[in-house]
Computed example of a mutant assay.
Amino acid sequence: MPTARIASGHTAPGQGWQAYGPNGIYIDVDTTAAHFTGAPVYVTSIGSTGGNQWSLVGPSAVYDATASKFRVYVQWKDSRPLTPAIAQQYGWYINWIGYDNP
């Protein structure tokens, strides 16, 4: 019987963010290095090299999770426009921990 696996990681600061409409961005997080084999549970947070991540909504919501990836959408809490360039400017990145119990 396979054993449970726990792994963690983070995305590169400011890199990989994509536009999602005029007010949001998303990032696809690659977890293939964790070698999960089941349907992992992911827990996330957002970090920064330049700040302002406190004023975002969405960084703890995980979408489209598989053994090798998941997606996170974020926007400003006041819904003003947000672009990948802003994420790059602030050096935002996603921290993650995955638990896989195949």
Rank of each mutant, 00 (worst) to 15 (best):
R71L: 01
N95G: 02
G16E: 08
I94C: 01
W54P: 00
Y73G: 00
T32Q: 15
T37V: 11
G16I: 05
G16L: 03
Y42R: 02
A61T: 14
P102H: 01
A65S: 14
T49L: 13
W96R: 01
N23V: 11
R5T: 14
W17M: 04
A85P: 01
A39N: 13
V74D: 05
P59C: 09
S48M: 09
G24L: 07
K69Q: 15
Q53P: 01
G50K: 08
Y93K: 02
S8H: 11
I46V: 15
G50P: 04
T83V: 07
Y20H: 12
P2V: 06
P13I: 11
P84Y: 00
T32I: 12
D78Q: 05
A65M: 07
W92V: 06
Y73I: 06
Y26A: 01
V43G: 01
G16N: 09
G50Y: 06
D64H: 11
T3V: 14
V74W: 05
T83C: 02
W76E: 02
I86S: 00
D28G: 03
G91H: 08
A85D: 14
S48K: 06
I97Y: 04
P13Y: 15
S79H: 05
T44I: 08
G50N: 10
I46N: 09
P102I: 00
Y93M: 01
I86R: 02
V29A: 06
A65E: 13
P22L: 10
G91E: 07
G47N: 11
Y20C: 04
G51I: 10
H35F: 03
Q15S: 13
N23A: 12
I6S: 11
S45Q: 10
W54T: 13
D64E: 13
P13F: 13
V41M: 09
Y90L: 02
S60D: 14
Q75D: 08
V41P: 00
P2S: 07
A4Q: 12
A4N: 10
A61I: 15
D100Q: 07
R5A: 14
A7R: 11
F70A: 04
D78R: 02
K69H: 15
N95Y: 12
A33W: 00
A4M: 10
W54R: 14
G91P: 04
F70Y: 11
W76T: 04
V62N: 09
T83K: 07
I25M: 08
P22V: 11
P13V: 13
T44Q: 09
I6K: 10
V62C: 10
W92Y: 05
G14N: 05
I97A: 09
G51S: 09
A39C: 02
G91Q: 08
L56Y: 15
H10K: 15
A7E: 12
Y73H: 06
S60G: 14
R5Y: 06
A12P: 02
P84K: 01
G47F: 06
T32S: 15
N95K: 09
F36P: 04
Y26R: 09
A34K: 02
S48Y: 05
V57P: 00
A67Q: 12
V74A: 07
N95A: 01
G21E: 07
A39S: 12
M1K: 08
G51Q: 07
V41C: 02
T31P: 03
Y73M: 06
G50E: 07
A67V: 05
W76Q: 03
T83I: 01
A65G: 10
V74F: 01
S60N: 13
R80F: 04
V41W: 03
I27W: 02
G24N: 12
Y99I: 13
A19E: 13
